[in-house]
Design a protein around this nucleic acid. Structure first.
Lengths: 120, 120
DNA sequence: TGCTTGTTCAACGAAATGGTTGACAACGCT
DNA sequence: AGCGTTGTCAACCATTTCGTTGAACAAGCA
């Protein structure tokens, strides 16, 4: 899983990591604070954090022995761009299909009854 | 990985699967057509397709012995909503931080030189 | 009926993932 | 210097993932 986008998607494929991101969107937090609500060890959370950091979703500064975790919102753009691009294509294609079907229906109409007006 | 969103993110964490989605955004395709560009067996692609299908990203119909694969664009909404929500929070917080810093700079100004006007 | 094409299922192996426990590094406090 | 707090590293284990090969199923065609 070398490329950036893959790391970002993989990072967010875990419910605990998504929840951490959600909480970090509200405020920075330390590892211990982040670990508190979950039924796993602090070490496990530290690992999750490493995954998020490798994906570029969070950064850690240093304050004495604390390592406050901060959400990097810019990375979301990467995903959003990818998603929106293909969604748009797919939806356009869907609309084109609708248009074709509508046209076919029109043609069928024209075959079965007399023409009334041009709907071009 | 039981929940829907996790399955969707995990499905898109693989470059081959993302590429398949990109191609399916342009046109429906069969398993063999999809497998053609990749250096893996058709069976492997069939498995990838199962992952995409379980995530609700694609559906398969039946045409004789073919199983054309179709992209379901609606699922993208799920991701987009999640991403946009937390990005927005994070960005707002960032702007609030900017405001606080600006305010602090203002206060520093006021300490070092005489007041000019109120910037509330 | 038997052959060919398209697709999936089953079993297996290598590597990655998510968790654990135990040790240890870095720092602030007294 | 010694102690408690915060966090990471290393080793290990169970499970999942991604790929393989080989067999089987499904549907059209000779």
């Amino acid at each position: 899983m070398e490329d950036r986008l893959s790391r970002v998607f993989a990072a967010l494929a875990d419910p605990i990591r998504r929840d951490m991101v959600a909480r970090l969107a509200v405020a920075d937090a330390t590892v211990n604070e982040l670990a508190e609500p979950y039924a796993v060890t602090v070490q496990a959370v530290s690992k999750h954090l490493k995954v998020l950091e490798d994906a570029g979703l969070v950064s850690r500064s240093r304050q004495a022995q604390r390592r406050p975790v901060h959400l990097e919102a810019e990375v979301f753009d990467l995903m959003t761009k990818w998603i929106e691009r293909y969604r748009r294509e797919a939806e356009q294609r869907y609309q084109r299909l609708d248009a074709v079907l509508a046209e076919m229906a029109d043609l069928a109409d024209e075959e079965t009854r007399t023409r009334k007006e041009d709907a071009s």
